Amino acid sequence: MLKLNIKDETSRLKAVVLGTAESNGPIPKVEECYDPKSIEHVLAGTYPKEADMIQEMDAVAKVFEKYGVQVFRPEVIKDCNQIFSRDIAFVIEDKMIRANILPNRDQEVHAIDYIWNQVEEDHRIILPEECHVEGGDVMPWNDYIFVGTYSGDNYSELITARTNIDAVIALQELFPEKMVKSFELRKSNTNAKENALHLDCCFQPLGKGKAILHKNGFLIEREYEWLVDFFGKENIFEITKDEMYNMYSNVFSISEDVVISEKNFTRLNDWLRSEGFTVEEVSYSEIAKQEGLLRCSTMPLIRA
């Protein structure tokens, strides 16, 4: 059995699910895309090639190998985009929670059944149907669970709105000893620069008490200010709208002081090194074209 353990975003990583770009399927039609950035690249003829994405993900697998991390991959489903393993489930403490994601992505969830079945039965959680949630919106952070959400009346019209208030309430009931803190995110089906698809598109806690933030990703200024106060202004790397669009906040921590980051994020990577982090740089710019990056394609199972 797998002894799950996830209390935060930065403790030493022991086991992780890394998505796969194998048999990714044909270039989607515009109406099949889940986010505005994918639409941009479909229309521009720059949608990423499967071979390039496989190469990018293999580079991340090699970094995990270097640090002795056990890597699980989803079973490959023919012609199915299975890159973003963070969307399909997530772990808090010793429980794995299956995400209620977009209905046409249901088969992605079953590609990790072999992992799900290694978790003790009473630690496998399936939320009620009305609870919509994806792992990119959920961040365990010690006594807190940070959750990105959207509660506007037009929720059902926004394919970019992935986590609702029902899910926030359900998480609070599941973990009564934790403080579940929700943040309203800015959503747009059409403009990628005005769309925080998930909380990890505009916020990411790091080791050493640091964090990456983008103010415009939050709909309510006082919620953004709460995070600034929580981490301390001097510990925050504030990213620009263009940097958010390029997914600067979607890095991934292997430990308190080791971060995997995109090699083109020069400003961020220089800052991380100046703060004492080891930065493992990889090329992930093709995968980024689908509005997801390193955190989106990884789902931690065990941190020490």
Rank of each mutant, 00 (worst) to 15 (best):
L301F: 00
A304P: 12
L102K: 15
F175K: 01
L219F: 08
K233D: 15
I27L: 11
Y155P: 07
E173V: 08
F84D: 02
F90G: 01
F252C: 03
Y284D: 10
K181Q: 14
T46R: 06
A44L: 15
P205F: 02
S253K: 02
G148I: 04
F146T: 01
A99Q: 06
I112M: 03
N164M: 08
L43I: 14
H198L: 09
Y67W: 10
K181M: 13
I101W: 04
A167M: 04
L206I: 05
V71C: 02
E184F: 10
H132S: 13
L4E: 00
A304W: 14
V71K: 01
D122N: 15
S156C: 14
L294Y: 05
M179G: 15
D94I: 08
F277W: 07
E22M: 09
N24Y: 12
V16D: 01
D58V: 11
V76E: 07
F230E: 05
E262R: 12
E238W: 12
N264D: 15
G207L: 03
P176C: 08
Y245K: 07
E280N: 04
C33V: 04
H123M: 08
G148Q: 04
L158K: 07
K7L: 12
V69H: 00
F72Y: 06
F183M: 06
H214I: 06
V60D: 00
D79T: 10
L272G: 04
V228K: 06
W271K: 11
V228A: 11
L4R: 01
M299E: 03
I27W: 09
L227S: 03
E234F: 12
K210F: 11
C33G: 05
F231W: 10
N164Q: 10
S156H: 15
I54G: 02
D153R: 13
T298K: 00
Q55S: 14
T266M: 13
K29Q: 15
D87W: 02
C202R: 02
K210M: 08
N189R: 09
Q70Y: 12
Q172K: 02
V147S: 02
F175H: 02
C80V: 08
N235P: 11
I220K: 10
T163D: 05
N216E: 15
H110Y: 06
I212N: 00
L13T: 00
I159T: 14
D229T: 14
Y155Q: 11
Y150E: 05
A288N: 11
D143T: 13
S255F: 07
G25Y: 03
R303I: 04
W141A: 10
L127F: 05
R86G: 04
A170L: 03
R105D: 08
L127D: 04
A15L: 06
C202S: 11
C202F: 07
A161R: 01
A192K: 13
H123W: 08
G25S: 06
M57L: 13
E262W: 07
W271E: 14
H132I: 14
K66P: 01
Y144P: 02
E281S: 09
N269V: 04
Y67I: 00
H110M: 07
Y47W: 07
L199A: 07
T190V: 15
K210N: 12
R186L: 14
A44I: 10
Y155S: 09
S182T: 13
S285P: 06
L102Q: 13
A59H: 04
T46K: 06
I239F: 03
E32D: 13
C33R: 02
A288I: 09
E108F: 02
V17P: 00
S283E: 15
E281T: 09
I39G: 01
G217F: 00
